[in-house]
Simulated scan of single mutants.
Amino acid sequence: MNRLAVALAPLILAVSAFNAHAQDPHAGHVMPATPAPTRPAPDPVVRPQTPAGPAAQDPHAGHVMPPAQIQPAADPHAGHQMPAQPATVDPHAGHDMSTMAPPAQPDPHAGHDMSTMTPAQVDPHAGHDMSTMSMGPPDVPTSADNRGRPPEDSLPAAALGGPTHAADLVFGVGAMAASRRTLVRENGDVRTTAIIIDRLEAGFGDDGETWLWDVQGWSGGDINRLWWKSEGEGDFDDGVEEAELQALYSRAVTPFWDVQAGVRQDFRPDGEDTTHLVLGLQGLAPYWWEIDAAAFLSTEGDLTARVEAEYDQRITQRLILQPRLEIDASASDIPELEIGSGLSSVEAGLRLRYEFRKEFAPYVGVEWSRAFGDTADYIEARGGEADETRFVVGLKAWF
Rank of each mutant, 00 (worst) to 15 (best):
A52W: 07
E244Y: 15
Y311H: 15
A348R: 03
D90M: 09
P124N: 14
S16G: 06
Q216C: 02
A348K: 02
G174N: 14
A397F: 10
L337E: 07
V278H: 09
G127N: 10
P51W: 08
I223K: 06
D129E: 07
F18H: 08
A22M: 11
A104R: 12
L337W: 02
A17P: 00
W211C: 02
E380P: 00
D258C: 12
Q260P: 00
M1N: 08
D153V: 03
T275H: 04
A22W: 01
E310A: 14
F204E: 01
R191S: 09
G79A: 14
S344I: 01
Q105D: 12
A305F: 05
D107A: 12
D90E: 11
P54N: 15
S298K: 04
R47A: 11
H165G: 02
A261N: 03
E290L: 10
L395S: 01
D153E: 07
L352T: 04
R351S: 07
Q260D: 05
V364P: 01
E338C: 04
S250K: 03
I315G: 07
A7T: 00
N19K: 09
W288A: 13
T88W: 05
D189S: 08
A27D: 06
D198F: 06
D292C: 13
R370P: 01
S154V: 00
K229V: 07
R191L: 13
A295D: 08
R318V: 10
P156K: 08
T164P: 00
D139V: 06
L226N: 01
T182M: 06
P44Y: 07
D222V: 08
Q246S: 15
A36P: 03
T38D: 07
V190W: 01
S230M: 14
I197N: 11
P323R: 12
P323L: 12
P151N: 03
A87M: 05
D206C: 04
W227L: 06
E338F: 05
T88Y: 12
T182I: 08
D113K: 02
Q69F: 11
F372Y: 09
I195G: 13
G203D: 01
R225T: 07
G62C: 09
A41H: 05
G234D: 11
E209I: 05
L169Y: 09
I334Q: 02
Y354S: 05
A101F: 13
L4W: 04
T299V: 15
F391N: 00
R225K: 15
P83N: 14
E300G: 15
G384H: 04
G234S: 12
E300S: 15
H29N: 13
P255T: 10
W398P: 00
N19L: 10
R324S: 14
V64C: 01
R225G: 07
L284T: 10
P86D: 11
P40V: 02
F204H: 01
Q81R: 12
F399V: 03
E359M: 02
R306C: 09
D374C: 01
G349Q: 04
F399W: 10
A305Q: 02
A175L: 06
A74V: 05
A78E: 09
